[in-house]
Write a protein that binds this DNA or RNA. Sequence first.
DNA 1: TTGTATGCGTTATCAG
DNA 2: CTGATAACGCATACAA
Lengths: 326, 326
Amino acid sequence: MTISDIAKMAGVSPAAVSRYLNDGYVSEEKREKIKEAIEKTGYVPSRQAQILRTKRTKIVGVIIPKIDSDSISRVVAGISEQLLEEDYQLLLANTENDIKNEIKYLKTFKQSFVDGVILIATAITDEHRKVIKSLKIPVVAVGQKVDFISSIYHDDYGAAYAMTAKIIEKGHKNIAFIGVPDWDAAVGVDRLRGFKDCLADNKLKFNSDWLKIGMFDMDNGYENAKKLMKMKKKPDAIFCATDTIAMGAIHCLNELKVKVPKDVAVCGIGNGKTVRVMEPPLTTADYYYRESGKEGARMILEKIENPKSPVMATMLGFEIIERESL
Amino acid sequence: MTISDIAKMAGVSPAAVSRYLNDGYVSEEKREKIKEAIEKTGYVPSRQAQILRTKRTKIVGVIIPKIDSDSISRVVAGISEQLLEEDYQLLLANTENDIKNEIKYLKTFKQSFVDGVILIATAITDEHRKVIKSLKIPVVAVGQKVDFISSIYHDDYGAAYAMTAKIIEKGHKNIAFIGVPDWDAAVGVDRLRGFKDCLADNKLKFNSDWLKIGMFDMDNGYENAKKLMKMKKKPDAIFCATDTIAMGAIHCLNELKVKVPKDVAVCGIGNGKTVRVMEPPLTTADYYYRESGKEGARMILEKIENPKSPVMATMLGFEIIERESL
DNA sequence: TTGTATGCGTTATCAG
DNA sequence: CTGATAACGCATACAA
C-alpha cells in the first residue's frame, strides 16, 4: 500500500493524497473519495519515506548512565510521559556508566537519527562539550546545570543547605557527611557546598575527618558509616548525599545497634521509592524527578520546533520530607 | 555530504562507493581513493536512506508497563546491554500501565518502524493476540509465558513452591499469602499455585481467609498485613508475591511491634535492590531479571536475522536468598 | 570489476 | 485548487 495506490483508487494524484494527509488543501469531493480509499485499505503512510523527505524522525534520543536506578528511571518516566503526549518517540541509550559510550551515542545521534537529545549525565567533560557543539541537533541536559546548552536541574545547593539547617535545628552539632566524588558537579560538589555553607552560617566548624567520599551505592553508606562509628569522636548525625547512601548507612547503624535517630541521626536526598519503609523511615528531600523529566522533554521539543530559541536553565525546587531518621 | 559527492571526489561511481561501504566488491586502487575521500570529509551514510532501501532499522522496540520499577528497569538494563553489543538501538515505549497504550504502540510498530519488538506485559489479552499476529515483525515476550510467540520467563511456580517449602521447613504452619490479581498470569496465578501446591504436598491446609489480593505496590503489603494482624487467628508467616509487597508488609509489622521473623516471618520474590537493608533483611528469591532481558534481546535478534526460526520458550531459574526475615 | 539506471514512498515545487 | 514531476540518499540488477 503506497500513496500512489490510494491515489489510483480514489482517482486522484498522489500529491492530492499527500495534501489530504497533511495540509488538507483539497476539495470536498476528492476528500471524500480519498478518505474512503484510505479507510478501505487501512493505508498508513511509511514513516521512513516521510523521514527521508522531511528530515524529521519525531524521535528524541535519551542518554542515561544507567537505567536501574531509582532516580533516573523516574526521570525517564517523566520524559516518556511528556513525549507520549506530544506524539514523539523515545530512543533510549544506556551508557552503563561508561563515558566512552556516552560520546559514542552522541556521535551516533549526530547522523541526525533523532531530532534532539536529552542528556542525563553526571559530568560534562571537554569532550562532551566538543561533540555536543558539533551536533546539528539540539541537546538539553537534565540533572546538571550546563552553561552552553539548555538544562534543567535540581536545587542541590539549596536542598543540602536546608537539610543541614534541619539537622542543626534538631540539636545536632557534630555532623558527618557521606558523599560522592567531585566529578559529579551536582551531587559531588553542590550538595557538599550547601552542607558546608550552612555549617559555617551556624558557626559550626566543618570536621574533615567526618567527610567521607565513595560511590553512588549502598556500600558507600554502609562502609563509611562503619568507619565513622569506629572513630574516637563520633558524629551524632550523618548527612548522606543520596538516599541510596543513606540506606546503606542506616543498615550499618542498625547492625551496630546504634539507635537512629537517638544516637545518630541520618538523612538523605532524593526521596527514593523505598526509603519510607526503612527502619526508621528516612528523612529526605523530594526532588520531583519525574517532573524534571517532563520539563526536559518540553524543553527539547521547544528547541526542536524552534531551533533558535534561547538557551535556558531551569532550576526545580525540593521539599524536605520529615520522617523519623532525623 | 552524499554518496555521490564522495563518488565525484574519488572519481568513481556512487555504486562503487556503496559497494565499498557494503560488500566491498571494489579494486584496490579505487578502494584507496574512496577511503581517502571518506576520511577527508568525515562522510557518514544517511541512516534514513539506507532504511528506506533496506527496510531494516536496526532498532528494536521495547514495550513496558512502567519504567520506574525495580524489576522492569533491570530487565531493560539487560536488554540494553545486549543490544548495545549487537549494535542495535532501543526504542522504549512506556505504556504507563495502560493497556490501550500497549495496543497503540504495537500498532505503531506495525508500520515496520522497528525490526522487532520485545514485550514486557503483565497480561496477554485476545486483543494482544490479534494485533501481534497481524504484525509483520517478530515479537518476543519477556516475563510471561506466551504460547504463540517466543518467550522467556521465570520459574514462578517453582520459586513459589520452593519458597513455601522453605517457610514450612522453618517450622511455620499457618501461612498467609499476599498476592496480586489473576489477570497477571505469572505473579497472580503461578506464584499462588506454587504456594498452594506446596501447602497441599505438605498436608497443610490452605486457609482462604489468609489469602489477600491487591496491587503491585507497598500499600498492598502494608494494608493486608494490617488486616491479617487484626484477625483472631493470625498467621505466623506471610508469603508476599513480590518484594515490594513484602516491604510494605514488614513495614506494617514493624509499626505494630510484631517481631519479624520471631512472631511472623515474611518473604518475597524478586530480590529487589533495597530489600537487603530492610529491618530485618528480606528473604527472597533472586530472579536474574537482567539476564532475562539479555536473553530476550538475543531471542529477538535471532528472530530478526532468521525470521522462520521456531517459536521457543525459555524458563529461567531462581535462587532462594536466605536473609533474616524468615 | 565497474557504472548506469531504477526504485524505495513521500513531500515540495510549480505550472496549469 | 490540482496534478506532473523532481528531489530525498542510498542499494542493487543489469549491462558493459
